[in-house]
Computed example of a mutant assay.
Amino acid sequence: MALQSSTSNEAQASKKLSHVHFFVWKEFVWGAVAGAFGEGIMHPVDTIKTRIQSQAILNGVKNQKGILQMVQSVWQVDGLRGFYRGVIPGVTGSLATGATYFGVIESTKKWIEDSHPSLGGHWAHFIAGAVGDTLGSVVYVPCEVIKQRMQVQGTITSWSSSAMKNGIVIKPGAEIYDYYKGLFHAGCSIWKTQGLKGLYAGYLSTLARDVPFAGLMVVFYEALKDVTEYGKQRWISSSKWQVNNSFEGLVLGGLAGGLSAYLTTPLDVVKTRLQVQGSTLMYNGWLDAMYNIWVREGMKGMFRGSIPRIAWYIPASALTFMAVEFLREHFNERGPNGDLRDVARLSIEKKKSLQEAA
Rank of each mutant, 00 (worst) to 15 (best):
L250V: 11
K165M: 04
W111P: 02
Q275S: 09
Q72Y: 06
F247I: 09
G254D: 03
V324I: 09
E333H: 03
I146Q: 03
S115P: 00
E329S: 14
A344P: 09
Q242N: 10
F83C: 07
D178W: 04
M299E: 09
V270P: 08
F37R: 00
A261W: 01
D342Q: 05
Q76N: 15
G202M: 02
G60V: 04
L252Y: 14
W25H: 12
S18Q: 07
I170C: 08
V61Q: 01
V243R: 00
K110P: 00
G93A: 05
L207D: 06
V139W: 09
E175C: 01
A323I: 03
V219C: 10
W123G: 05
P117L: 04
R296I: 04
G231T: 00
S18F: 10
I307E: 14
K271G: 08
P315Q: 04
I88G: 11
L327T: 00
Q153K: 05
G103V: 07
D46M: 00
R51G: 10
S161E: 15
W75E: 12
T134R: 02
V33F: 13
R296A: 01
G305A: 09
N332Y: 06
I48K: 01
S14W: 03
R304F: 06
M302C: 12
N166K: 14
L199R: 09
E27V: 04
N245L: 01
E349R: 04
W286P: 05
I170M: 04
L274N: 08
S239F: 01
Y180H: 14
V29M: 09
G305T: 06
F303G: 10
K350F: 01
T193Q: 14
G154D: 12
I314F: 05
S306W: 02
E333M: 02
L255S: 11
K49E: 12
Q194S: 08
Q275P: 10
P172T: 06
Q12I: 12
E248F: 06
T228R: 14
V219T: 10
M282W: 07
A34R: 08
Y230W: 15
S158A: 11
L183F: 15
L199S: 06
W111V: 09
E325G: 06
H116C: 14
P315D: 07
G154P: 05
S94V: 03
E27H: 05
E10L: 13
K352G: 15
W123C: 11
D268S: 13
G66N: 13
Q194I: 02
S94T: 11
L95E: 12
V343T: 14
W191Q: 13
V270T: 15
W191M: 14
Q275E: 13
V211E: 05
I307V: 13
K171M: 10
E325C: 06
V74D: 05
A34Q: 07
S353M: 00
L263A: 14
Q148D: 12
D114W: 03
A318I: 12
G129E: 01
F184N: 09
G254A: 04
W241T: 15
I112Q: 01
S260H: 05
K147P: 00
G136K: 02
G98C: 09
A311C: 10
I307W: 05
A124Q: 10
G40W: 00
A358C: 11
R304C: 13
I67A: 07
S347A: 14
S317L: 04
I314T: 12
R234L: 12
S189V: 13
L287N: 13
Q275F: 07
R309M: 07
Y84D: 07
H116T: 08
R328S: 12
D46H: 08
M302K: 13
F303E: 11
V169I: 03
